[in-house]
Design a protein around this nucleic acid. Structure first.
Length: 554
RNA sequence: GCGCCCAUGGCUCAGCUGGAUAGAGCGUCAGACUACGAAUCUGAAUGUCGCAGGUUCGAAUCCUGCUGGGCGCACCA
């Protein structure tokens, strides 16, 4: 509906400029928004006011000119009004709303999908944690946000590719191998003191025990330099398998796990550096190689090759992004922990040096999670290995509650996650509110079936019977869904879906409590049954976008 | 010291690239099941949108300064 009205408005504006009445130059962003107050009609636009200053006319006068050029070939509009300082208010004919449900019925599971992407290729890279230990609660939020953004982009008409970048090169991995090696020797009866930078968690001991079981004590007196890589490889593989399994149980999957190491093995980093050098974006100083990120707005230049000759993580990361774009993605979305925000300017500089548009890389920051139990903070310390893992959280509160809770706020704002609250099956827990609405509708449909009513198709219903104010409101809420999907895709803001779901469920519950769906009036019963089935479709599709189940019974 | 993010009822948060009377949920108070599921609904109270200026027809939203909080400022990843 929004789209249709926007089109009417657009052609009206075109007509005005055509007659030379409004020389506005570039048309502004066309705003058409739902009104908060029904006295202002159904939709309203502020174009007249935006245009007024440009054409140096009174806003209401401009609105008048636009209104005169408005044509409504399909007869959607009841009337239009000019109100307040110059708003154009659109009143839609009441019987036009119900007709929109035809789309819901015909599209079914696909309802809500839009074509914002027009088939463009998008990569979403997320989680990307070091395989040095199991994923913890913070990773869980990033995992859900990335996963849902990927689902939203797919629904918005993009071809989506999900990737996990395995940081399996560098010091951390070496520390991992050493940690396991130390525990291995400990198991053989040696008294060992774990160095400061080693990983302490129990899972390290488990891996050490596995190696001991497999290889015996053969590594006992081996030279650390030669044997640690073996431990590193083994541990990384085991941990990575665990990570994949935990993610799968959380409903998060990837098309590809991309190993940082392969960048070195295929000379990706070396080639990248050569390319940057060729193009004059790097310079040498005191035996280190610097990337001129200041040329692209970064606050200082960054080291890409250290004094000891080893490339930095940053160098590999540029090479990785070059690799991403070379695989044909138009847009690359990175989901990062908010503590990496300082890294954005240099990464943006990196891709610009490679000749890619700054806009082609979009970075979504995910803030930290405050884990609580009954309102009290849960102590966590990664170093000592005392942390609550993602798996523990999902096992304890369930996949649906965990996912939904992570999506209830903007991803760049801090989130309190209360384990007890997330587990509680009460009105304090918003997941159930939405799921309950879905289950309730399923229950109505079951009851209807017992009384001989199947859910009718649009063609077999007199939607004209749906004319209560609450019914129009419900239809509006249903038909807003594709707009929400588009907005969420445009801004990469998954939380819009949870707010939408909450709103739709609320309108439905209210309607349900006030009106009977199944009554003695057969025609009305069928129309209402159709209406609530459409609500179910919207709820179900939106929940699916969040990776949250839509239960038929609870 | 520099940079980024945040500040909205008692609490937790929305507020859609500036719009009409700032909205939800929780909590509080008062009500609604002989009818399709009460994990629900109806109603009430609660605000100097951190503070001070500025931009304009119009600011929670944009700009400047200040206060208070978070994060970042590696030849770590």
């Amino acid at each position: 509906m929004k789209k249709k009205l926007a089109e009417l408005l657009e052609s009206a504006l075109a007509a005005c400029t055509g007659e030379g009445l409004l020389e506005a130059g570039n048309l502004p962003y066309l705003e058409m928004e739902l009104t908060k107050d029904s006295a202002h009609g159904d939709y309203a636009s502020n174009v007249a006011m935006v245009l007024a200053s440009r054409v140096r006319k009174n806003p209401r006068q401009v609105a008048g000119i636009i209104r005169e050029h408005l044509s409504d070939p399909d007869g959607i509009l009841e009337k239009t009004e000019i109100a307040g300082p110059g708003f154009l208010n659109f009143f839609v004919k009441e019987d036009r709303w119900a007709a929109l449900l035809a789309e819901v019925d015909s599209q079914g599971e696909r309802y809500g999908a839009v074509d914002l992407g027009k088939g463009g290729n998008v990569m979403v890279e997320f989680v990307s944690a070091n395989p040095t230990g199991p994923l913890h609660i913070g990773h869980a939020r990033g995992a859900v946000v990335g996963d849902v953004i990927a689902r939203i982009m797919a629904a918005a008409g993009f071809a989506v590719f999900r990737e996990y970048y395995i940081n399996d090169a560098g010091n951390q991995m070496h520390n991992l191998g050493r940690s396991v090696f130390f525990r291995y020797r400990e198991l053989l009866g040696e008294k060992v003191e774990l160095p400061e930078n080693c990983y302490q968690g129990d899972y390290i001991k488990d891996i050490a025990a596995e190696i001991l079981k497999r290889d015996g004590d053969g590594h006992r007196n081996a030279d650390e330099k030669t044997v640690v890589p073996l431990f590193t490889d083994y541990a990384a593989r085991v941990i990575m398998e665990g990570i994949k399994e935990d993610l799968r149980e959380f409903g998060v999957t990837f098309e590809k796990y991309f190993s940082e190491r392969t960048l070195y093995e295929n000379d990706g980093v070396a080639k990248l550096l050569a390319l940057l050098e060729e193009q004059g974006f790097v310079y040498r100083e005191e035996n280190t190689l610097w990337f001129k990120s200041t040329a692209f707005g970064d606050e200082k230049d960054r080291v890409v090759v250290r004094r000891n000759g080893e490339p930095t993580y940053f160098a590999a990361d540029i090479a990785y992004h070059k690799n991403k774009f070379s695989r044909g993605f138009d847009t690359v979305i990175d989901i990062w922990g908010a503590d990496h925000h300082g890294y954005i300017p240099r990464m943006a500089a990196g891709i610009q040096a490679l000749g890619y548009d700054k806009e082609a890389l979009r970075i979504v920051l995910v803030q930290l999670v405050n884990l609580l139990r009954d309102g009290k903070p849960v102590a966590m310390s990664t170093r000592s290995g005392e942390f609550v893992t993602m798996k523990e959280v999902v096992d304890e509160v369930g996949r649906d509650a965990a996912r939904y809770n992570f999506l209830m706020r903007r991803s760049d704002s801090h989130l309190d996650f209360d384990l007890e609250l997330a587990k509680r099956q009460s009105n304090e827990n918003p997941v159930y509110y939405v799921q309950y609405a879905h289950a309730r509708i399923c229950s109505i449909i079951r009851t209807a079936a017992e009384r001989g009513y199947a859910v009718p198709r649009y063609e077999d219903v007199d939607v004209g019977l749906l004319k209560l104010a609450e019914e129009i409101q419900l239809i509006k809420a249903i038909t807003r869904f594709p707009e929400v999907v588009e907005g969420a895709a445009r801004t990469l803001e998954p939380h819009r879906l949870t707010f939408y779901l909450n709103d739709l469920a609320s309108v439905f519950h209210s309607y349900y409590n006030k009106n009977r769906v199944i009554s003695d009036d057969e025609g009305l019963s069928r129309a209402r049954l159709f209406l609530v089935a459409c609500v179910r479709t919207a709820l179900g599709n939106a929940l699916r976008l969040l990776g949250v189940s839509a239960p038929e019974k609870m």
